[in-house]
Design a protein around this nucleic acid. Sequence first.
DNA 1: CCGGGCCTCCACCGTTCGGTTGAGGCGCAG
DNA 2: CTGCGCCTCAACCGAACGGTGGAGGCCCGG
Lengths: 211, 211
Amino acid sequence: MTIRVVVADDQEMVRLGLSMILRGEDDIEVVAECDDGPSAVEAVRRLRPDVALLDIRMPRLDGLEAARLVAQDTRVVIVTTFGDDDLVDRALDVGVAGFVLKDAGPPILLAAVRAAAAGDALISPEVTVALLKRRGPTGRPATDPRLAGLSDRELDVVALVARGRTNAEIAADLSLSVATVKTHLVNASRRLGVRNRVEIAALAWSSGLVR
Amino acid sequence: MTIRVVVADDQEMVRLGLSMILRGEDDIEVVAECDDGPSAVEAVRRLRPDVALLDIRMPRLDGLEAARLVAQDTRVVIVTTFGDDDLVDRALDVGVAGFVLKDAGPPILLAAVRAAAAGDALISPEVTVALLKRRGPTGRPATDPRLAGLSDRELDVVALVARGRTNAEIAADLSLSVATVKTHLVNASRRLGVRNRVEIAALAWSSGLVR
DNA sequence: CCGGGCCTCCACCGTTCGGTTGAGGCGCAG
DNA sequence: CTGCGCCTCAACCGAACGGTGGAGGCCCGG
């Protein structure tokens, strides 16, 4: 049982390259090649492939929107040049079954297509490491725009507030006086435009300062 | 520049299979094979390989603990038979650079080793799909084990606290008196084992109750 | 029928927080 | 040298919170 694939990328060279790699495998069949979003959606709905390989950036309808439209009909593998954090998040929210960088190499591409066809999901290692950095306890800064403008010390205090520490505990943790902690907190609150420490915590959590 | 790898698995057949696959590649060199956790840790510390391939279940010291011990020294790729959710979570917390199922096939294994050596991370498609399924829009499990036992009303209050609302505002939001809000909060705090509303907020955020 | 959980409220009191004002020290750019 | 920003602390006061001990109502199950 061969895996039927629709390939969509507006760059002809890339599209040909993808197809070439896929056609070299005898368990994979490329049933359509498209050069923009709408035609990809149409092809998927008409041909009902097992997998749709979509460039994330395409004319008229980008890969993410196209993925959203066909996510119920087929497994979508996103191909892209850059593993931009925001794009990855949005793609994963859409529910794609794969996320492959264009420079990942044939083995990864083939593994992603086969994984998608099998109901699994493969994410390019370069992207995965970024994901883990942002999600894992080991990963750190990822400075959110909303927290920009805070000084280093203020960020320290904000992070501890977000973990539920009282001012006295924060003072002890950072070897400061409670007065200093309060000063940092008042200043940070003013800059962040929040009214109390729980809103600070909410901001810290939603911005990824703490997890 | 070849990738130097330490392989550790207590099942000889598996260990030989892994080594065989790796030795077939001319950019990879297996510098040690170990059959338990302590010897794997020792081998890593002595040989300083680029990648350590660790079975998650090994005598005396399992792969996770071994990974924790050597995570600073080398990139760790976990190999395992089952992609158990909890094991995956704990592995990712430890900061592994790969998570490969034993039935994933040579291409995935090789890709994982090369990705790890390059500072990236590859997760087996079968595991990735489980991760994505559990992933809420923020990348955390949609289910909230820690919040179990709270009543509906208490959850309402907790969610509003997590958004930074004061007791008076929560009372207005839910058309209650401040006294009732405080009661719910005290009860919820006792059940959750937290000391103040910011810890409630932290719990709500980290459990995915609010985003 | 009666216990028990849940939801709703009240009063009281000590602790903590929010915000202000004011102050000294440090390092750095103008 | 002179600001200026950052970090550090202090005193003070009103507002909010944390915790306790009640109270009545509801519904459900034994």
